[in-house]
Design a binder for these strands. Structure first.
Lengths: 162, 162
DNA sequence: GGTGAAAGGTCATTAAG
DNA sequence: CTTAATGACCTTTCACC
């Protein structure tokens, strides 16, 4: 249940040049085209690759403010109902249930700081939300990425073959 | 500097069925193929779409633990040097500079809870890091998504035409 | 390995801001 | 007048059998 070095190279290649065809991939990787196709299919139905969706930048859409909002909620029948209501807010990009003093952590975007106030007001109005605490992301020196992880997996396996 | 309804429909379509060709897109959207291509190109070089990379699931690679680690750092000449060093750790998927009591917020993954301890140890060893505080994400009821936001932008523009 | 089907580019025409 | 959409044509390239 893991990936080998060829898989890692394939993922890396596809990440760097996503619009590459299978044939081009096979040439660059130095393997047969059928191999590439088979590897890709396996990665997809093993759930390693979940999709090829276009990556959209909220900032380019005018949402220049990112914040992490932690919520305390009324804990009745699980956290799910609150999370479900939060999911209906477009500016809420992500929700986690967490350990520590708070119950939920949301990643939120807004057009401006005062727009963030509006979004937070919407969140506070969600039934079951008791308190919020917001932290603004001023800058993102390391944007989300998984490539280093992908490249690392085969090396770890190499050291400790399962 | 925003997107219209056709752009939103195109992004939505491509997100739901990423392996669609331009021709198929044009058919589904009811516009000419050249239009789809032109729109896509414009979205890409306006920075709205940043890439088509394969979405990799860390969980499928064996990294079942996600945590948010906030750091206090020695504030010398900017936060950049520390962030730069953090970027060399594969398990660190994301780094933000933030407001509030801490200076940096990292999204981190690990194979297990005790593996998380190892990763945190690596982070603590980074030069300039004074203190860490970790919050584990137990569950993710709303995984990262931008589609609702994308669908919302044209509607907002429609209401308040610029 | 061959074949049908797209991608990707250019162009002239037309429409709309 | 500028910008965008359209349909037509063409060549290269790929996906599938």
């Amino acid at each position: 249940m893991t990936i080998d070095e060829l898989d890692a190279r394939l993922i890396t290649l596809l990440t760097e040049e996503p619009r590459l065809g299978m044939l081009e991939c096979s040439r660059r990787l130095g393997v047969a085209r059928g191999t590439v196709q088979a590897r890709l299919d396996r990665l997809i139905d093993r759930g390693v690759i979940t999709g090829f969706g276009p990556d959209v930048s909220p900032a380019a859409l005018g949402y220049h403010v990112t914040a992490f909002v932690s919520l305390e909620i009324r804990q009745v029948a699980g956290h799910d109902p609150v999370a479900h209501r939060l999911a209906r807010i477009p500016e809420v990009l992500e929700v986690h249930t967490i350990t520590g003093g708070s119950d939920l952590l949301c990643r939120v975007v807004a057009r401006t700081n005062s727009d963030l106030q509006r979004v937070i007001d919407v969140i506070v109005d969600v039934q079951g939300v008791l308190r919020t605490n917001s932290i603004i992301a001023l800058d993102t020196p390391v944007p989300y990425r998984v490539l280093p992880l992908v490249a690392d997996v085969p090396r770890q396996e190499g050291r400790r073959p399962s």
